[in-house]
Design a binder for these strands. Structure first.
Lengths: 147, 147
DNA sequence: TTAAGCTAGATGACATGTCAAGCAGATCTG
DNA sequence: CAGATCTGCTTGACATGTCATCTAGCTTAA
């Protein structure tokens, strides 16, 4: 049984700390700016990206790499707040579409500039170009191992 | 307003994906092996690290970089499951100690080998030494910007 | 064409996390 | 030394996420 050495432990603890702090601060900023969570933001971004402004539930879940039931619950909550709307699917009687509402579009347009500025300031501006390249490689290696 | 360029967007999305997948898999593995969550594991590790096996609530929260109320709720849940116990603090009438129980110690001893093996396999074994160094630097830079 | 099985989604139960408020025991100050 | 304030911790309300299960609409094969 091989444990983590000193350096590995330090890196690992800092990894856990950094990821949780970064997520917490993004959540707080989005909440303050536009009453959104990071999860809301991700859903809205994806919907904004497609011309029709609507996607099938399964497709959206796959795009976001979310579990389907998580998305279903989340859509319910977002619908209650008027950020998205559920629509029937003509093709498939079982299907459902999640559609961006005007209010949802307004919310993400309000939130996006400060959110992007925060990501830029706290991540990309803090790193050299070479570090970003290495980070990309690291993410790729770890991700491919996870599948 | 400067948005993220192609490469930055790709890295950022992969960052969000990788961090969430890694956390999800760690949680699943810990749950399967020992009925623990990653949060439980972190609490138990910290308590195991101190000789007395008990810490003041505030101290533990600070060590973990958790909000105090999160820890309080979490300790309640862990106490209900017998993993830790709350104790009175002799020094300070307001204070409370969180103490590792036998059952808590048994749980972490059961969980640790596979958990460490998973972290090693999915992270450290997937990276070169130079990548780990760069990761360390990246974590440091971003963290210092977050405070 | 119909019964078996598959697929899309929703839901209930429950664990987790955040924020704001509450409470009781320290501490400080006039 | 008595009120004001601060501190350590808990609690309630509520948002979020997971797992298991349910339902209804498709699909397929005898």
């Amino acid at each position: 049984m091989r444990w983590l050495d000193e350096r590995e432990q330090r890196v690992w603890r800092r990894y856990l700390l950094m990821t949780s702090q970064l997520a917490a601060q993004m959540n707080r900023q989005l909440a303050a700016d536009a009453g959104l969570s990071l999860a809301d933001y991700e859903v809205l971004v994806r919907l904004t990206d497609v011309p029709a402004g609507r996607l099938r539930v399964t497709r959206l879940a796959r795009d976001l790499s979310w579990e389907q039931s998580r998305l279903s619950h989340h859509v319910s909550r977002m619908a209650r707040r008027g950020l998205v709307a559920r629509e029937e699917c003509a093709d498939d009687g079982r299907g459902a579409l999640v559609a961006l509402t005007e209010q949802g579009r307004a919310a993400i347009e309000r939130a996006a500039p400060a959110h992007v500025a925060f990501v830029r300031a706290s991540v990309f501006d803090a790193l050299t170009d070479a570090q970003v390249d290495t980070l990309d490689a690291i993410l790729g290696s770890v991700l491919s191992g996870l599948r």
